[in-house]
Each structure stands twice: as C-alpha cells, then as structure tokens.
Design a protein around this nucleic acid. Structure first.
Lengths: 193, 193
DNA sequence: GTCTATAAGATGATAGAC
DNA sequence: GTCTATCATCTTATAGAC
C-alpha cells in the first residue's frame, strides 16, 4: 500500500482521465488524449486499464471513495447541520472553480446511455451516497431545530443534490462561478442553512 | 415554406439527431447513427449539414425556437403565475417521460468544452431565454401576490432552472420520473406555486 | 437531393519485444 | 511496466456520378 503522497502511474492516469471526463464527457476523450498528457503510450494505459469501461468504473469507484472521505471529514469537523451543509456545498464549488469542471458523477449521469453497465452502477451509487448523507444531516438538523423545511426529508435531499448538479451545469456554460454560489446559497437558505 | 405537418428530410435528420444527442451526448453519436435511423446515407446528411458543428448549431437554434413557442403558448394560455410555472415544469417532465431523454440544452451544457463555438452560443442563449422568462413570471407573480419568495428574482429563476436540469440528470440515471416530479413540485412549492 | 466511392485520421484494443 | 507495431473499425468529410 503506497503512501498517500506517492503517485503511481495508475493514479496519474486516473487523475488525467478524470479531468478529461469532467471537461468533455465519457465519449469526448480517448486513450490518446490521456497518453499525451501523462507522457506515456496508449498501450501502457491498456496495461493498467484493459478497456475504457474498466477505466470508467475504477474512476467512479475512486471518486466515490474520495467523496465519501470528504463527507466523513465534514462529519468529524464538528459544527451544526447548517455548517455541514455549507461545507457540502463548498465541495461542489471547489470543482467548478478548478477549471470550470463538471462534477464527475453529474457528467457521467448525462452520458448515462453511452456508459458500460459497470460505470452506470457506480453513478447511481454516488447519487445514493449523497442522498443518504444529506438525508441524515437534514433529519438531524430538523430534530435539533437547526434546520427547518416542509415535506419528506428524502425529497429535500434530492432537491439540494439536483440544484447543485444543475447549477454546475448552467454556471459552467457561462463560466460563471458566482452564479453557482448564488444558487447554492439560496437553496441552502431554503432549509435554514 | 412547408406546412407544419410536412416532414422534410432535413427535419427528419434533425429529429433523429436530437434524440441521439439527448440520449448519448454530442460526442456520443455519429453521422452513421443518424443515417441508419433515417434510412439515408452519410453523404446525404452532409448535403444538409456540412459539418457536425453546423448540425449542432441548427439543432439548438430549432430547439430554442420551439421552446420559445412553448413559453409563448403558456403565456397565452391564461391562468396565474402558479399555473404558468407548473406548465413550465411539465415541459421538462415530458422530455424525461419520452425515453428518459435529457434536456437537449442541459446535455450540451455538460458537453460544453467539446462543442464548436457556434453551438456554445446557442446553449448559453437557451439558458438566457429561460432565465428571462422565469424572471418575468416570478416578478409578475410576486407583484400580484400569487407567488412569494425572498431574495433577488434572478436568483430564484436560476434556482428553478438549475433544479429542473439537475433533477433530470439525477432522475435519468435512476430511470425514475417520479423523482423528478417530486423535486419539481417541491422547488415550485418553494415560491408558492 | 441522393447515391457510391474514397480519403485521412482517430479509436479502442492486441501481440510480442525489451 | 513500458514500448513499437499493428489491427479492424469508426469518424468526419469530400468528389463526382446519377
């Protein structure tokens, strides 16, 4: 098990592939693109990821793991439910700020019909993870009086997730991070955060 | 000028191309795909649309026109601001219901970095159209006491647009129209509709 | 306006040497 | 683990006959 700071070729491939997917979609990049940016040959990428489907699935799996860790970190950071939701929102802005990229999962959700089945599973799984986490935070927040909203918690969670993904989509086409921030702030204000 | 019911080859190409983009993204389909579905040869498509960029731009231009007409129709249909917003939401559900397609513009917004400039312009233009229309409805609705919400009207308009686009994205990956409907209803309820 | 034929390059993927 | 070489296929696009 390599140290966290160590960067293997496999990781560098995933890093480059992820940026390409987030910018151009699953059908919008090729092994040649990755090879050029990493500084290796196409065949070497196939050594690490036999097919594009495998690459996509491992990409999403890593993203889910990383995102899960980020959510855990928010959990442990203390602070109330409002603070947690605001930190959750920051997870999305950070991606948008760094090169106007789309959320990896949001991008692959758009490409859903063009994805291998193994990648599709990871995409729905990511959304599940987010809805589960948001539902828990919203539930706790309401119980403790920190948050207030009407209707089922699950729907509120879906509203927040959908609004953030959609705001990334729209803001990206304007290259306007402020638009995202305004939408995120307004949506979170809607539950009292 | 052909009658509305008449279907030219050019229109049939656009129809098929639109469905393909909405399902697989701009990089996820080819002239060969269109040719097979329309029942003509690739060269014939190039006769009508010299390049894929031209096809994309004309596709979005038609979509904007059609959508604009739909918004005008809502305008003329009478009813209050609440009713108008609900009809606006129905525009999106209908697309999702018909083959779990993504909004053409939302899909192209995801593909933004892979688009020719002429298509990009149309994408931002579509979002402009929507925000302008929503802003007007929200403003009128608030003035007449039909709707109520806090903060700038433009931000509310962006929230609604973002939430609907994002809800399509998420719902599509679950093949779950009800998820979209729940989110749409909740978001519109947030402004009193 | 549609066709056949063809081009030039990209694409995902494999075989086998080092 | 990375490379060269190669493959079959697909991609966008053009030329020119009908």
């Amino acid at each position: 098990m390599p140290a966290a700071s160590e960067t293997t070729t496999k990781d560098r491939i995933l890093d480059v592939a992820q940026q390409l997917v987030q910018a151009r979609g699953f059908s919008g990049f090729s092994y040649a693109d990755i090879a050029a940016k990493v500084g290796i040959r196409k065949a070497s990428i196939h050594h690490h990821f036999a097919t594009k489907g495998v690459l996509g699935a491992e990409l999403m799996a890593r993203y889910r793991t990383d995102f899960g860790r980020a959510l855990q970190s928010i959990e442990k950071s203390g602070g109330g439910s409002r603070s947690k939701l605001r930190k959750y929102g920051r997870l999305f802005v950070d991606v948008l700020r760094d090169g106007h990229r789309m959320c990896l999962c949001g991008m692959l959700a758009a490409d859903f019909d063009a994805l291998p089945k193994s990648v599709r599973t990871e995409v729905s799984g990511f959304f599940d993870d987010n809805e589960t986490w948001l539902t828990r935070v919203l539930e706790t927040g309401r119980a403790e009086g920190d948050l207030s909203f009407t209707g089922p918690v699950e729907v509120q969670a879906q509203v927040i997730l959908a609004a953030l993904e959609g705001a990334m989509l729209v803001a990206r086409s304007y290259r306007n991070v402020k638009l995202f921030e305004a939408v995120a702030q307004r949506v979170l204000a809607g539950v009292g955060a």
